[in-house]
Write a protein that binds this DNA or RNA. Structure first.
Lengths: 212, 212
DNA sequence: GAGAATACACTCACTAGTCGGTATACTTTG
DNA sequence: CAAAGTATACCGACTAGTGAGTGTATTCTC
């Protein structure tokens, strides 16, 4: 079995996911991960060059599923972008009600390694957020929103801001405050869109972004 | 000299501030802090019961100055609430340009101790954010904004969301995106205010909040 | 038999926290 | 007034445990 997809490796990543997300990356030692995976530390180091390598793999593993969950959640054709985006915030609020919820793994990793800009975890985290923002931009542009890029940024800010507030206050209702703010922003931009159709065309041309 | 305000104690907190904020709380050992303060670890433990105690003191020390800096930044009578709030975001962007900037110490502490809701650091962090939100609400209410409480929450979300995005992408311009979003939200609420003056009165009555 | 995958046993640095002791200064008491 | 007592503030050296990472031997699988 290939080394980068072996059962043991996947078990190690799964164990790392549970512990890193549950307790924090720096708070968890490699010994604990090896034990949780049912292997010795030496085996862990056979599959990963270092703890940093394992950290990167942990976040990488969370990248596509996290984005994909939101993408699947809001079916392509079904509703307006505004409605679909509202559901993202509502889902965030629901997720946060689970006692095991600990915020965004990427954001927390960036916070833990705030002093190490080049750290693998930071690289993966930044890429994840870039992808999410690009996807939001596509959703907006596809629905004919003007200035989709600027709007997508604002939505990202609201999204991570809501996560931050929920984490700090342990109060999922902040997701709904963010949803309201998002609605307000979308309504305003929607209007300006309808007033100037030429913008709409230009914004529609922005969708060369890669998601995969 | 009283034990809780002695020079040594203050030096220890200052050293902790530099190291905790610079590298992260879990990443810094008490030995490093003692050494940076020029005392032995035994002395550190004379002044603080535990590392957690020192962590709480570090955040406590940041509470009032952080809030106060923003309060002093925007003079009471000078400008409209909208203009004053925009300046908060602009200042955030400026702060973030300093290479030593590492985001919000309270948010990062909450992220590091995401699994320990009762941790002293979490308590101090939550209280700080509550104070900040209450102050924003006062600023808005004083300028006659309706639904000042809901609006203050949305601004907090934008503020911490901007911090999160800047931290992740190392891109201070997210502060300006957040400022634009804040302006949009304020404009809309301002309008609804003028339509319903009774709301304004009710919101004005909310200012029993304590800041000090 | 070869290479991949695992285990045991280890290193060395660092972790939070503690033990016992000391120098100084301010009180209390004969 | 002086000796004894006491509180403050400090330090060097230690403990028991954990951190990441490794050298070497063994087992499994093709």
């Amino acid at each position: 079995m290939a080394r980068d997809s072996s059962k043991t490796r996947r078990r190690l990543i799964a164990a790392a996911d549970g512990l890193f997300y549950g307790q924090g990356i720096r708070a968890v030692g490699v010994d604990a991960i090896a034990e949780a995976a049912g292997v010795t530390k030496r085996t862990l180091y056979y599959h990963f060059a270092s703890k940093d390598d394992l950290i990167a793999a942990y976040l990488e593993e969370r990248d596509l599923p996290t984005l994909g969950r939101y993408q699947r959640m809001i079916p392509e054709g079904g509703a307006s972008a505004a409605r679909r985006i509202r559901r993202i915030f509502e889902q965030l609020g629901k997720n946060a009600e689970d006692p095991r919820w600990r915020g965004c793994s990427f954001l927390r990793a960036a916070a833990e390694f705030a002093n190490l800009p080049g750290h693998p975890a930071r690289v993966v985290a930044a890429r994840h957020k870039r992808r999410f923002e690009a996807w939001l931009e596509e959703v907006l542009a596809a629905d004919g929103f003007g200035e989709a890029a600027a709007l997508a940024r604002q939505l990202m800010i609201l999204l991570d801001g809501a996560v931050a507030q929920i984490l700090i206050h342990r109060e999922p209702s902040y997701a709904l405050s963010a949803a309201d703010a998002a609605s307000t922003l979308l309504k305003r931009t929607n209007k300006s869109k309808r007033r100037s159709a030429h913008r709409r065309v230009r914004a529609g041309g922005l969708s060369g972004v890669h998601l995969s």
